[in-house]
Write a protein that binds this DNA or RNA. Structure first.
Lengths: 233, 233
DNA sequence: TTTTAGTTTAAATTTACCTTAAATCGCCGG
DNA sequence: CCGGCGATTTAAGGTAAATTTAAACTAAAA
């Protein structure tokens, strides 16, 4: 895995580089945004760590440029909380951010999380299962159709995606945010309520009794999961 | 939180000790590496601040020795930049470093960051176990389900988190405050009673006889622990 | 015995969730 | 460019469950 580090302070840059190399990553250090951009154009980079404030080309504008051509995962570093708000506010598509001072453990964890996430995204589930089944539910992915007890369900696109995602990962609890991420693709305009309404709609179409759902279970305080068939509770 | 300070210069050592004690930490000062090592072996230390140059046993070798037995967070202090490079170059696993002279605020921030980080999950090296087992208790973290003797337990979110935390650290005594921080997060207003009530609820669900609990033991004056199976008291 | 620490229960409060309806968005045809 | 339609989001009110508070009780230490 190749990681780009754009950071103007030498000590921090070295600390980051060495720590990440220890973890087995290949590191490409850059001392300003312009140098970073050169590296991105010429190397295959899998994740970028950008300082917000840098000479030549600052983190914001570098990210903007990156986003014009790719969805490379980007983690922002910043010393000031106002910058943080700005990162979020601009909605430029930073995948994560970290306030200085931070610990190497923390950074390493975030890096691993981003790479893992991106990896899952790039290699979504084994050689494409084209149909899914769970109890009386059946999905034909080629035709994008869902059936309940052999009868076609009229699902809207979001409802369909939600159901597919849950059926691909049965028994596993997802937070609303995770579901939003999986179905909508990002989490910038995320709102709890949206997910809840869609879950409600979906239940109305697949559950016999929405009061005690057979398929989509609520795990209070956590999220939802596709529930084991025949299980209690 | 217990912090070890290994620093040979008396003035600096005292300054550090006093400042950190002011912030509410318990400080264990040592005037050389050998003394520090004795403290580490006998006390429960949560973070170590090591000077690089010390008589008897220098910071590098002390860290090496520490790393053979634990993942204790370590912050290095050094006056010379060459030492800094050495800290990094050796890849010994220092979590952070600080160049002298430094501000107390800076150090306090780094200390807090390390402790926070370490507290979030006590075993950052473990590749997160997805299931936990202890006696007749079993937890499936992916599905967020707890079972007793194969039967599903209906736990509330806080009860669930509490049980997970205890099962991830069996045999270790936690104060009520530590448990509270682990489950609720550090920055909520803490109240003894809350923890006690939740422990009570949890016991009602997992203990056959709440009068002589088999799993969650009370250690009077200290806190609670997940008790060794079959052990007495 | 007195004091302190822990347990338990029930009531009060807060939070999270569900549902419905209305508002908004985005696309297609006229 | 406009109107209409389906899909999606926002908003509000209701409800149930989880959490906290409070108080009475019990056991252990001093």
């Amino acid at each position: 895995m190749n990681i780009l580090i754009a950071e103007d302070e030498k000590d921090i840059r070295n600390l980051l580089a060495i720590s990440l190399e220890e973890k087995g990553y290949t590191v490409f250090p850059a001392k300003n945004g312009a140098a970073a951009w050169e590296i991105i154009k010429t190397q295959e980079i899998h994740l970028a760590i950008l300082d917000v404030m840098m000479p030549e080309l600052d983190g914001f504008n570098l990210l903007r440029r990156i986003r014009e051509v790719s969805t490379l995962p980007v983690i922002f570093l910043t010393a000031r909380t106002e910058d943080m708000d700005k990162v979020l506010g601009l909605g430029l598509g930073a995948d994560d951010y970290l306030a200085k001072p931070f610990s190497m453990n923390e950074l390493a964890a975030r890096v691993a999380a981003q790479l893992r996430r991106n990896h899952e995204y790039l290699n979504p589930k084994e050689p494409e299962t084209l149909s899914l089944q769970y109890g009386e539910l059946y999905i034909d992915k080629k035709a994008c159709c869902a059936y309940l007890s052999g009868r076609l369900l009229e699902l809207n696109p979001k409802e369909y995606k939600l159901l597919v995602f849950l059926m691909e990962n049965p028994e596993r609890v997802f937070t609303k945010k995770q579901l939003y991420n999986a179905v909508w693709g990002d989490d910038y305009f995320y709102d709890d309520n949206t997910i809840m309404v869609h879950i409600s709609h979906l239940r109305n179409k697949i559950e016999g009794d929405t009061q005690s759902p057979e398929y989509i279970k609520t795990i209070r305080g956590l999220g939802y999961k596709l529930h084991k068939i025949g299980g209690s509770r």
